[in-house]
Design a protein around this nucleic acid. Structure first.
Length: 333
DNA sequence: GACTCGTGGCC
DNA sequence: TGGCCAAGAGT
């Protein structure tokens, strides 16, 4: 805690050490955005969301498409769907619940986020374990069991060192320590306030922790996206359901997925020509996306969608793979 | 417990 | 340059 009092990062969603907790809405919004996402990537989105929707009630009243478009580019779009569902539930209840168990019931709040909001926004003791804490604690106690199995022991040890007082500051101190000192590569043990207590440091093997299970190989899939333009506007569709990129605006495609290649068949007849290929890496597969253009598509049998002005394509809120395809299309018109 | 689900920075 | 990784959650 003494280290944190001096070294705490200044972040837009964070109170200074010892200061009153921020608005729970801001804590929750930042925590959801920060799930598997770097601070640098979150900053601009956090500012944009606060400007568009300053309160949880404002967010609850927003249109789905506006929220999805505002989230475009940040990734893991289930977070945006759950964010809106959660905001509406909280607005209906008249505010955020203030216990970890009740927070855990809200959409998009798992073990980590429920504990983090309980501690940071409401000052409650909670065992907050994110990837930073996993790294710090696995080194501190030299826990050699590979993740994910090792998480049970890591959580138990984190519980033993979590204080009752300043719950939020403790959680953020551990995360700051992990992000700035106890780093994945080349940890700065000489600057670490826990160096003398750290079993891995004493053994000279800090960088070997946490041990992780081997990763599965990533397949490469091929697919096709179709650029159908009429009168300066391009046809966009809304992706269905809760699957990949679900709820997002997108170009029509040929059904490619993580499991299978696309069928390559255009949605409408016409004189299609290739505009090139977009390469994009997702978490669990790589995609080679062919982009097809058709100057004179058959208007009679268009897929369901909306024509979006090409000049304003940036405002459509396309996920990155389709934003790349749109840039390629504009270069080939 | 295994799988699915984005993106960008880093070395 | 490519593999690794990040303030994980839901199924």
């Amino acid at each position: 805690m003494a280290w944190y009092d001096v070294n705490a990062r200044r972040l837009p969603w964070r109170a200074l050490p010892g200061e009153p907790a921020p608005d729970p809405y801001r804590v929750w919004l930042s925590e959801v955005m920060l799930q598997q996402t770097t601070v640098a990537a979150v900053r601009a989105y956090y500012a944009k969301f606060l400007e568009l929707w300053p309160t949880v009630d404002a967010l609850a009243a927003a249109a789905d498409a506006d929220v999805m478009a505002a989230w475009a580019g940040l990734g893991y779009y289930a977070r945006a769907r759950n964010l809106l569902a959660c905001a509406r539930e909280v607005a209906r209840r008249g505010g955020f619940p203030q216990t970890e168990a009740a927070l855990r019931e809200l959409p998009g709040l798992g073990a980590y986020t429920a504990a983090a909001v309980a501690a940071i926004a409401f000052g409650q003791r909670a065992v907050v374990v994110d990837a930073n804490v996993e790294r710090v604690v696995s080194r501190l106690f030299a826990i050699g069991e590979p993740l994910p199995g090792g998480r049970t022991a890591i959580r138990a040890e984190t519980d033993t060192i979590t204080p009752d007082a300043r719950a939020g500051d403790f959680a953020q101190a551990m995360m700051d320590l992990g992000s700035s000192i106890c780093t994945v590569k080349s940890p700065r043990c000489l600057l670490c306030p826990l160096a003398d207590a750290c079993a891995a440091r004493v053994a000279g093997t800090a960088e070997a922790y946490p041990v992780k299970a081997a990763k599965k190989a990533k397949p490469t899939r091929s697919g096709t996206a179709f650029w159908i333009e009429q009168d300066g506007a391009v046809l966009l569709v809304q992706r269905e359901g809760k699957g990949m990129l679900g709820g997002m605006r997108a170009l029509p495609d040929d059904g490619w997925s993580a499991r299978a290649d696309g069928h390559r068949t255009p949605p409408v007849t016409g004189e299609w020509r290739s505009a090139g290929v977009v390469r994009h890496g997702f978490t669990h597969f790589d995609l080679e996306l062919q982009l097809m253009l058709c100057p004179g598509a058959d208007c009679a049998t268009l897929p369901v969608g909306e024509f979006w002005p090409v000049d304003a394509i940036e405002a459509a809120g396309l996920p990155t793979v389709f934003a790349k395809a749109a840039r390629l299309a504009l270069a080939h018109r």
